[in-house]
Amino acid sequence: MKPELQNLPLTDNSGSHRFELTVNHATAFMEYGEREGALALFHTEVPGQLEGQGVGTALVEKVLAEVEQRQRQLIPLCPFVTSYLKRHPEWQRLVAPAYLRWFQPKEQE
Rank of each mutant, 00 (worst) to 15 (best):
H43W: 01
G52Y: 08
K62E: 02
E61Y: 04
P9T: 10
R18N: 04
E66T: 03
P105N: 10
G48E: 11
Q108A: 14
M30Q: 08
E34Q: 11
A28F: 04
E90P: 03
V67R: 00
Q73I: 03
A26E: 15
R87Q: 15
R72P: 00
E31M: 05
G56F: 03
E68F: 00
L39V: 11
H17Q: 10
L74E: 01
S16Q: 15
A98M: 09
A65F: 00
R18S: 01
A98Q: 14
H88Y: 07
Q49P: 12
D12C: 09
R93Q: 13
Q92C: 12
A40P: 01
L64M: 07
F80Q: 02
V55R: 08
P3N: 14
A38F: 01
Q92A: 02
A28T: 03
Y99P: 08
D12L: 08
V46A: 00
G48P: 09
P47C: 09
E31L: 10
G52N: 10
E66R: 11
Y32F: 11
L39Q: 06
M30D: 04
W102N: 15
P97W: 06
R35S: 09
T82I: 10
L85Y: 06
L41C: 04
L41F: 09
V23N: 07
P79G: 10
L21C: 08
Q49W: 03
E36P: 08
A58M: 04
P105Q: 12
L41R: 00
A40D: 06
K62Q: 11
V60T: 07
R72Q: 14
L41V: 07
P47W: 04
E107Y: 06
Q108M: 13
Y32I: 00
P47L: 04
R18Y: 02
P3M: 13
K2H: 13
G56N: 06
G52P: 05
V46H: 03
T22C: 13
R87F: 11
